[in-house]
């Protein structure tokens, strides 16, 4: 464990807490893409298949359970909660995210560490996470003004993988642990997708104005 990876995990955790706060406090999920939440639940379920077979540390196991649990709770809230589901932007959240799942799975079948069940699903989860934010970014552009908590959620979610990139660089030089090419390239693509969001987020913060994404 190093400071970069720990910061990344904490940033990721904060993004989830901010999203839970927004949904719980406002009893609304307007501006949140259910499709991105479903993709993230799939990412965690397929990435942590070794949850019960390999033990690294209490921290590692607890965080996996928190990520899987929170993503399922959020999907449940948005689909089933009698009040929250009414505020879901169903007509705006129309990204065909099934294509993202199929594309990631096909790519995982072609590019993976080893042709084993766990490795293919691990690669699938890495590829899927890189593009899982797309429905959310599209929804933000369509829904015009973005409420603060939603903006902060996306900001922290986009920042965490940037910390992981620093972690892979650090591990490469210190532990001679060459992070997998799969993680590195996907992590760079994932962070790059947030580039224009980060730009508008920074502008809104600098001018102290509401976050506006151009349609």
């Amino acid at each position: 464990m190093n400071i970069f990876r720990f910061s990344g995990d904490m940033t990721h955790l904060i993004s989830i807490l901010v999203l839970l706060l927004k949904i719980y406090a406002t009893k609304s999920c307007s501006g949140i893409s259910l499709k991105t939440q479903e993709l993230y639940a799939l990412v965690f379920l397929t990435r942590y298949l070794n949850l019960f077979t390999e033990f690294f540390s209490v921290y590692n196991t607890v965080m996996k359970l928190v990520f899987i649990g929170s993503s399922l709770v959020i999907v449940w809230y948005m689909r089933m909660h009698r009040v929250v589901k009414l505020s879901y932007d169903k007509e705006l959240d129309t990204f065909r995210h099934y294509f993202l799942v199929v594309a990631s799975f096909v790519l995982a079948l072609l590019v993976h560490e080893k042709f084993t069940f766990q490795e293919i699903f691990w690669a699938f989860s890495i590829y899927l996470e890189a593009i899982a934010i797309l429905p959310q970014l599209v929804l933000l552009q369509r829904s015009g003004n973005v409420d603060n908590l939603t903006g902060q959620y996306v900001f922290f979610l986009g920042s965490y993988r940037a910390f992981y990139i620093l972690n892979w660089i650090y591990r490469y030089f210190t532990e001679n642990h060459f992070a997998r090419l799969i993680s590195c390239i996907s992590g760079l693509v994932q962070t790059a997708l947030y580039a224009d969001f980060f730009y508008y987020y920074f502008i809104s913060w600098k001018n102290n104005k509401k976050l506006q994404l151009p349609a």
Binding site: D9, R47, N50, F56, N60, F67, E113, N167, R180, S183
Partner: peptide, 10 residues
């Protein structure tokens, strides 16, 4: 490298 790579990251 032969060492089995494990996914110790989240």
């Amino acid at each position: 490298d032969p060492e089995v790579k494990v996914h110790d990251e989240l």
